[in-house]
């Protein structure tokens, strides 16, 4: 990809290099281009293709296209090679120009590319190592077979003040709710309970990655996990009723 990617501005982001070196103690050749990461790393004797974002990247049309392009390239050139999505995103870029150009299409292409990779035997792992927000996470880590998160990660639809404004539920009440209910807080542990995050990756990240690769499966099993973990009791049951109802 050319240098037209969004330049990064955020300073307080988690350092992707330290995350990558913990994931790939056997070595990697991941490079940064603007907010985009691409390359490969070795883990458990296996080579993984890596594509990711850094500095809370806003996913605009360019970087989304670059991510999809890279995944398709891997599928074409390295059949079966597992994919790791390293995600730190503030969500889709909120600009009129991106919408004019059909950003939904660009972001969706990432999901579709992941699906084609999955169909052709690639295992796909997502790791939210810092932030994962709305459209940015839907198209990436949440489209993977298995999604992990670092303990300090934040996953959310939007921040509480904005949510309070749009839902007209007072922020105090939302804050209170987010203490009691996993539905409202951006804590990744809530997403574990609700099945969308398979596990929190702590300690030996290479081992966590290895475990995730072993657990990867093509079918979406998040609703089942949610029921087992008590985080979403209805999703799986109601889907089943609609699927099987005579």
């Amino acid at each position: 990809m050319t240098a037209s990617l969004v330049t990064s501005t955020q300073g307080d982001a988690v350092d992707w290099r330290s995350v990558v070196s913990r994931l790939f103690p056997e070595g990697h050749d991941i490079v940064q281009d603007g907010d985009l990461l691409t390359g490969s790393g070795r883990c458990g004797g296996e080579t993984l293709a890596v594509v990711g974002t850094i500095h809370h990247a806003a996913l605009g049309v360019e970087i989304s296209l670059a991510m999809a392009q890279y995944i398709l390239k891997i599928v074409r050139e390295y059949p079966g090679r597992p994919l790791l999505l390293l995600i730190d995103t503030q969500g889709q870029r909120l600009r009129q120009r991106d919408e004019l150009l059909g950003i939904h299409r660009y972001v969706a292409l990432i999901s579709k590319a992941i699906q084609v990779a999955r169909d052709r035997g690639h295992r796909v792992i997502g790791l939210v190592y810092d932030q994962g927000v709305s459209g940015g996470i839907l198209a990436s880590a949440f489209s993977a077979d298995v999604c992990g998160a670092l303990p300090g990660a934040e996953i959310r639809v939007m921040n509480l003040p904005a949510m309070a404004r749009i839902t007209r539920i007072p922020e105090e009440q939302l804050r209170e709710l987010s203490r009691k209910s996993p539905v409202f807080a951006p804590d990744p542990h809530n997403y574990v309970q609700m099945g969308a995050v398979d596990s929190i990756w702590e300690g030996d990240l290479a081992q966590c990655l290895q475990d995730a690769l072993n657990r990867a499966q093509a079918n979406d099993h998040r609703a089942r996990l949610a029921l087992e973990r008590g985080g979403r009791l209805l999703a799986g049951r109601i889907a089943r009723r609609v699927a099987d109802d005579a």
Partner: peptide
């Protein structure tokens, strides 16, 4: 899009729809 009153659960539900569409298309 996501029903903000259901926040995290809504976000995951949309993700499951996207995955289900893709799996069915496959």
């Amino acid at each position: 899009g996501v029903r903000l009153h259901e926040a995290n659960a809504g976000l995951i539900a949309v993700s499951e729809i996207i995955r289900a569409i893709l799996a069915a298309r496959s």
